[in-house]
């Protein structure tokens, strides 16, 4: 088994903040999805959500707000899973709630040191 990083990307969501019911429903979707990976004994680290505020440092001490001036989709979070192959790891991304919000999951093998 090898470790893979699942990176969740989504467009910054404009519009009104979600209602508590929507948040509850979204939380359930995430928990059911992560729980499904854990039930296959393939969860390494449930990872973290990333808040939308951020800064980017570029050469010459150029600092800009947020990563999304050039990239439309920003990273919303990550999870680490284990799988036999890149294909198997990608299959684990199926049902990830971010896909339902128009986002994407990038799957990358973590190189061993």
């Amino acid at each position: 088994m090898k470790d893979f990083l699942l990176i969740f990307r989504a467009e910054g969501r404009p519009g009104p903040a979600p209602s508590p019911e929507e948040m509850q429903a979204s939380m359930k979707m995430w928990m059911d999805w992560i729980g499904g990976i854990a039930a296959q004994n393939k969860l390494v680290d449930r990872g973290n959500r990333l808040l939308s505020d951020g800064k980017v440092m570029r050469p010459g001490q150029v600092i800009t707000d947020g990563p999304y001036t050039e990239i439309k989709e920003s990273i919303g979070g990550y999870t680490i899973v284990k799988a036999e192959s890149l294909e198997d790891a990608t299959a684990l991304a199926e049902g990830c709630p971010i896909l339902g919000f128009g986002g994407s999951v990038e799957v990358r093998e973590i190189g061993s040191m």
Partner: peptide
Amino acid sequence: LQLYNQLLI
């Protein structure tokens, strides 16, 4: 279900 999700995590 949610308790099992958390337990498995």
